[in-house]
Design a protein around this nucleic acid. Structure first.
Length: 281
DNA sequence: ACAAATACCTGTAAGC
DNA sequence: TGCTTACAGGTATTTG
């Protein structure tokens, strides 16, 4: 599912191929796709040129020529596909961006079976006319996972009794990590995901921060993870390959790559955590 | 202030 | 075979 590496792969592909394209029409058919503000607020983006593609955590930011920023979040099952003009739409296509391009025309199809994903215009007035407070709709996000420092992690973890994994997936602490990469990061750092977050020694916080950077960077290089359902696809519909490098996630019973002991699956909230009891303390 | 639980969804797989 | 149930999980919201 789309976490930081998958959204960063999307960002890079769009920035490489789509800058300078002019949005001629944005057709929104999904009833839940725009829900933070009236859908009409997006009409103003039509006619503008795509001038920048940014990312904070799992949020994709599309910057347009007249200063608007359209935010895309794929949540669980969202995909953004580059398709030729008037290409057939896959089931659950909720938005179609039609562009004028140097080559003639292209489309983006926003596909999202589970409808958790969303689009919104940064700073647009909400249903009651109110605007988001300081920092906008993204103001709650912590530092991006690729840039977070050990000092920032130390501050965020201090005094917290919650399990380490809970804080790794808390977007206010560090933005971009989800269930898959939290387990992989804990393994890389040799720390149990269920240990209290506030009791890490400075050397362990440093190891954790290094692990965050190393795992996320490696996953970006591999163009993200596609799980068994192959739900995650890039703009061309291709799967990632970092799932081949997973060492603990969804690998219960398989040998730990470092010590050979079978990987454990332990209940974690309403879900699970995967870890090696011998290598992770 | 913090922590834990729940709602939101649908496709897939497992179980009977 | 066909049905029911459990599970996958990011974020906002609610509850404790």
């Amino acid at each position: 599912l789309p976490e930081l590496p998958e959204v960063e792969t999307l960002r890079r592909d769009l920035a490489e191929r789509c800058l300078g394209w002019t949005l001629e029409r944005l057709a929104l058919s999904g009833r839940r796709t725009v829900r933070r503000h009236p859908v009409e607020a997006l009409a103003g983006v039509e006619g503008q040129e795509l001038v920048g593609v940014d990312r904070h955590g799992k949020f994709l930011l599309l910057h347009w020529g007249q200063g608007d920023t359209l935010v895309v979040h794929l949540r669980m099952s969202g995909q953004l596909l580059i398709r030729p003009p008037a290409a057939p739409q896959a089931p659950h296509t909720h938005a179609v961006f039609a562009f004028a391009t140097p080559g003639g025309g292209q489309e983006w199809h926003f596909v999202d079976p589970r409808t958790f994903g969303e689009l919104f215009l940064l700073g647009a007035p909400g249903p009651g006319g109110e605007r988001a407070a300081d920092g906008g709709e993204l103001g709650h996000l912590g530092p991006d996972g690729l840039a977070v420092t050990a000092q920032q992690m130390t501050r965020a973890l201090a005094g917290r009794r919650a399990p380490l994994k809970s804080l790794l997936v808390d977007q206010r602490v560090v933005a971009g990590i989800g269930n898959i990469y939290a387990d992989e990061i804990c393994f890389e750092a040799k720390l149990r995901p269920d240990r209290p977050a506030g009791r890490l020694r400075p050397a362990q916080v440093a190891r954790l921060t290094d692990a965050i950077h190393a795992i996320l960077r490696a996953a970006v290089l591999a163009r993200g993870s596609s799980l068994a359902d192959e739900q995650y696809r890039d703009v061309d519909g291709r799967v990632g390959r970092y799932q081949l490098a997973h060492r603990v996630y969804a690998r219960a019973g398989m040998p730990c790559p470092d010590c050979g002991r079978p990987i454990d699956r332990v209940p974690f909230g309403a879900r699970s955590a995967f870890l090696c009891r011998r290598c992770q303390r």
